[in-house]
Simulated scan of single mutants.
Amino acid sequence: MTLQLVRFRVPDERATEVEESLDALFRALEAASPAGIEYAAARFHDSPEFLLVLDHTGDGPNPLLELPAAVSFRARIPEWAGAPVPPEPLRLLGRYSG
């Protein structure tokens, strides 16, 4: 299992653009239905700060790297954020699902 986090802030005027791009990305994910991943995106309330979390539970390469919409979204993050934002690995300490 690989758990990664991407956290970035954009100028206020670009936040809606990022949300719209995330909506398109999740529509593409639904259509492609890649196995072995859980992917989540969040915005910190009304701030222009975003959080992306990828849980790659499968073996082999990350299927997001083969999805054009995901590759395109990831390529735009430095443009929105003003600098490259590499994914950071996370170590899961606990998870509960009820």
Rank of each mutant, 00 (worst) to 15 (best):
F50R: 01
A24F: 00
E88C: 08
A31C: 05
A81R: 10
R27Y: 05
L25T: 10
S72W: 01
V53T: 09
A75P: 00
V53W: 05
A28P: 06
S21K: 01
E79C: 07
E79M: 06
R43K: 06
A75Q: 07
V53G: 04
P84M: 07
P61A: 15
A70C: 12
F44L: 12
I37R: 02
G58D: 04
W80S: 05
L51D: 09
A83V: 13
D59G: 14
L54V: 14
S21P: 01
E66G: 15
L51F: 11
G58L: 08
L54G: 13
H56V: 14
S33C: 05
D59Q: 12
H56N: 06
P63K: 12
T57K: 02
S72M: 02
G36M: 00
A42S: 09
P68K: 06
S21E: 13
R74Y: 09
A35S: 08
A40M: 07
L29T: 07
P87W: 14
P63Y: 12
H45R: 14
D23I: 11
L64W: 12
F50Q: 00
L65Y: 03
S47N: 00
P61V: 07
S72D: 11
E38W: 08
G60N: 14
L22M: 02
H56Y: 05
A28M: 05
S21D: 13
A35L: 10
F26Y: 05
E30T: 15
G60M: 10
A69S: 07
V85F: 12
A32V: 10
S33N: 03
P78T: 14
E20K: 05
D59H: 13
L65V: 08
E88N: 08
L52H: 07
R76W: 04
A70S: 13
S21H: 03
S33W: 03
V85I: 15
S33V: 07
L25F: 04
E88G: 06
D59C: 10
R43E: 02
I37V: 13
A28D: 02
L52G: 13
D55W: 14
W80F: 13
R74P: 00
A41E: 06
P89K: 00
P84T: 12
S33A: 10
V53R: 03
P78K: 11
Y39G: 06
G58E: 01
A40K: 05
W80D: 09
P68F: 08
L25Y: 03
P68V: 11
A75R: 04
D59L: 10
V71F: 00
S21L: 01
A75H: 02
P89C: 00
P68W: 03
P61Q: 11
A42M: 04
P84F: 07
P87I: 12
L64M: 11
D59T: 15
F73D: 05
E20I: 11
G58I: 06
D46K: 01
P89H: 01
H45C: 13
H45V: 15
S33T: 08
G82V: 14
A40V: 07
A69C: 08
I77D: 03
A31E: 12
P34F: 08
E49Y: 02
E49S: 08
V53M: 10
L22P: 00
A41S: 13
A75I: 09
S47G: 03
A70P: 05
W80V: 11
E49M: 03
G82N: 02
L25R: 01
A81E: 04
L65H: 06
W80N: 11
L64A: 08
G60P: 14
P68Y: 03
R76C: 12
L29N: 02
L54T: 15
